[in-house]
Simulated scan of single mutants.
Amino acid sequence: MARIIAVANQKGGVGKTTTAVNLTAGLARMSKRVLLIDLDPQGNATMGSGVDKREAEYTICEVLLKECSADDAIVRTEEQFDLIPGNMDLTAAEMELIGLPPEHRGSQLRKLLEPLRARYDFILIDCPPSLSLLTINALTAADSVIIPMQCEYYALEGISSLMDTVQMLQANGNPQLEIEGVLRTMFDVRSKLANAVSDELTQFFGDKVFRTIVPRNVRLAEAPSYGQSIVGYDKSSKGGVAYIALAGEVLRLQRERDKLEGAA
């Protein structure tokens, strides 16, 4: 059964889509069956996976509107993972979700993904940079959430809103939702502020902070313009090494969970 992981942070520009695409590619390189869902109307995860968001026959929008099945929308990428594309049509899908009864608005994605769980090891969801109804659907469907964040002045302030939302969902509708990990992105080891915020994160989240730190890296920024992950574009770059390491951490966490479930 797939572990469903949402990649979320309501603050834009923190490496959320970069993390979703590159972690997906890293897990696929490790022979895992992985599906990436682009739930962001910007469609950047779709383009970064080498799929033109303007030419996709079906997207996650049609899936949410029940105009096609999730199976119909799945596209196989050149990097050997599956993708359900997203684009601006998601804005219309969100308006439709708002029109549903309150008890159903946030759970549509979970129902639609349930049939896919048996086919994958991991399903990753790239969320929009807001705590919108689309993000609520992702977190309601997810087993856990990865929070990418820059170690900068407003980072800790912004993360508190997301934590409030996670706690609200844990109490109402998705009790198993947990923090998979907090990922420090675009990290500059020379910055005193970055190191200070990193220390605060570790104090607050403890072992929920990933050991992997993603540095600022030109190759990482270039990869999406070629429709590739950093793993496909230049896996030996600092960014490539970091995301391969992150994939390894996620797999280790899953093995530990499997052991605990097996012993129970």
Rank of each mutant, 00 (worst) to 15 (best):
K111E: 11
L112D: 02
L112G: 04
E114W: 12
E114A: 15
P115Q: 13
P115W: 11
P115R: 11
L116Q: 13
L116N: 09
L116I: 11
R117P: 05
R117T: 15
R117C: 13
A118S: 14
Y120I: 07
F122T: 00
F122N: 00
I123C: 04
I123W: 05
I123S: 05
I123H: 07
L124W: 06
L124V: 08
C127T: 14
P128E: 12
P128R: 02
P128L: 09
P129A: 14
P129L: 07
P129Y: 09
P129V: 10
L131G: 10
L131D: 12
S132H: 08
S132Q: 11
L133Y: 03
L133K: 06
L133V: 13
L134E: 03
L134D: 02
L134N: 03
L134M: 09
L134R: 01
I136C: 10
I136Q: 03
I136P: 00
A138F: 02
A138V: 09
A142N: 04
A142P: 03
D143N: 13
D143C: 08
V145H: 01
V145L: 05
I146C: 08
I147D: 01
I147E: 00
I147N: 00
I147S: 00
I147Q: 00
P148K: 08
P148L: 11
M149D: 03
M149I: 11
M149V: 06
Q150C: 06
Q150G: 09
Q150F: 06
C151A: 15
C151G: 01
C151D: 07
C151I: 02
E152N: 06
E152M: 01
E152P: 06
Y153I: 10
Y153F: 15
Y154W: 13
A155R: 00
L156S: 04
L156W: 08
L156A: 10
L156F: 10
E157N: 06
G158N: 04
G158H: 03
G158I: 04
